[in-house]
Amino acid sequence: MKRPGAVPWLFVVPAAALTLLILLVPSLVGAAYAFTDWDGLTSPSWVGLANFTEFFDDGSHVVGQTLILAGLYVVGVNAAGLGLALGLAHTLRTRHVLRALFLVPAVVSPLVVAYIWTFILDVDGPLNEILEAVGLGSSAQPWLGQRNTALAAVAIVMVWQFAGYHMLIYLAGLQGVQRELLEAAEVDGAGPWRRFADITLPLLRPALVIGTVLSTISAFLLFDQVMALTGGGPSGGTDTLGTYVYEQTFVNGRYGYGSAVALLLVGGVCLAALVQMRLLRGRRS
C-alpha cells in the first residue's frame, strides 16, 4: 500500500493547531485562574481553594436551581421528542411537513426565541391577554416574576425550542424498530402500551442515551434562555451555573472566582454524562 505522504498532515496540522490554541490551551489556563483572584485587568495572585469554599458557602442555591431546570428540561424534551416521533413516524400524510414545522424552532437562535417568549409571558403580554379573553383571567399572573412559574417557563421555552431536534433523534431510532416486531407482539396479545414498553422502548435504548446525555449537557450549560427570559431572577431565583458564572465574571469582574465556578460546572457536566451513559447503556450482550 502506498504511504500517504505529506497530504494528510496538511489537513491535520491546521485543525490540531486551532484546537490547541482556541480550545485546549485557554481551557487549561482558565482552569489555572480558578485558583487566583484575577480581575481581568491586573496580575492575579494565588488564593488556593478560597474561591471554591466561597462558592460552597454562598452559591449552592444556584446548583439546586440548575439541577431543577436540568431535570425539568431533560424529562420534558425527551418525552416531547419521543411523543412527536411516535406520532409522526408513520401514517399521517402530512407528516413530512409537520416534521419540518416542529424542527423550525430549533434552528432559530435561542436568544431570539427567549426574547419572543419574554414578550409573550410579560404581564401585559399575549398569554395573559388570551387567558383574560377566554375567561381564565384569574390564572393570569406575572409568569416571569415568581420563582416557580419562572423556572417552569424557562424549562417550557427550552422544551418548545428543542423538542423538534429530539424528535429527529427518536425518528432515527424508530427506524430500527421494525413494524413486524410490533405486529408479532400485537398478535401475541400485547396492547399498545405494552408494545411500547416491551418492544419499542428497549429497542430505542441507543437513541435514549443520546437524547438524555445531549439534553443534560445543554441543561447544565444553560445561559441564553435564562438570561433573556428572567435575567436570573426574580431575585436570583432562576440563576443557573451558567448565568452565575457570567455575572460574577463579566459584570462583577471576578474572573478568578468565575473560573472556579466554571471549573466546577465542567466537572459536573462530565460526571453527569458519564453516569447517564453507564446507567442507560445497561447490560451489553
Partner: peptide
C-alpha cells in the same frame, strides 16, 4: 399587582 414580573418594555407600554 404584577410589578414583580414586569419587564422594562412592558412598563413603557403601560
Amino acid at each position: 399587582e404584577n410589578a414583580a414580573g414586569t419587564t422594562r418594555e412592558a412598563t413603557a407600554r403601560a
